[in-house]
């Protein structure tokens, strides 16, 4: 499960540019199984929260139309190198996902 979330946060001026890639099927519930002709049940991340040093910066709700293995990029003004960014997410079946990274200076 270690590779379920990849994160990177790099300073760009006074803004931290954050990129997050999660591993998730993001099944819509609209696809049919070719063998059984039955709909494959929906299985998707529906809520995701990002924090900077414990304070919420992003609080999102998702439907089924975020692409498989979700990517999200966002920017936080006022963040500094060394700051902690954490992500917690949950899917519609109640499975939780989390990740944390440290803001690094621009190269």
């Amino acid at each position: 499960m270690a590779d379920e979330m990849k994160m990177r946060a790099t300073m760009q001026g006074d803004v931290a540019d954050v990129k997050v890639r999660m591993t998730h099927i993001m099944e819509t519930g609209l696809r049919k199984d070719a063998k059984t002709d039955k709909f494959i049940p929906a299985h998707f991340i529906d809520q995701i929260v990002a924090t900077l040093n414990g304070k919420t910066v992003l609080d999102a709700q998702w439907g089924v139309a975020i692409a498989k293995n979700p990517f999200i990029g966002f920017r936080i003004k006022g963040a500094k190198p060394g700051d902690k960014i954490a992500i917690s997410a949950v899917d519609n079946l109640g499975t939780k996902y989390g990740g944390e990274t440290t803001v690094v200076a621009a190269k």
Partner: peptide, 12 residues
Amino acid sequence: NGAEPYINTFIK
């Protein structure tokens, strides 16, 4: 709390 009005993602 300082999040810029910017989002980048991939949609279906």
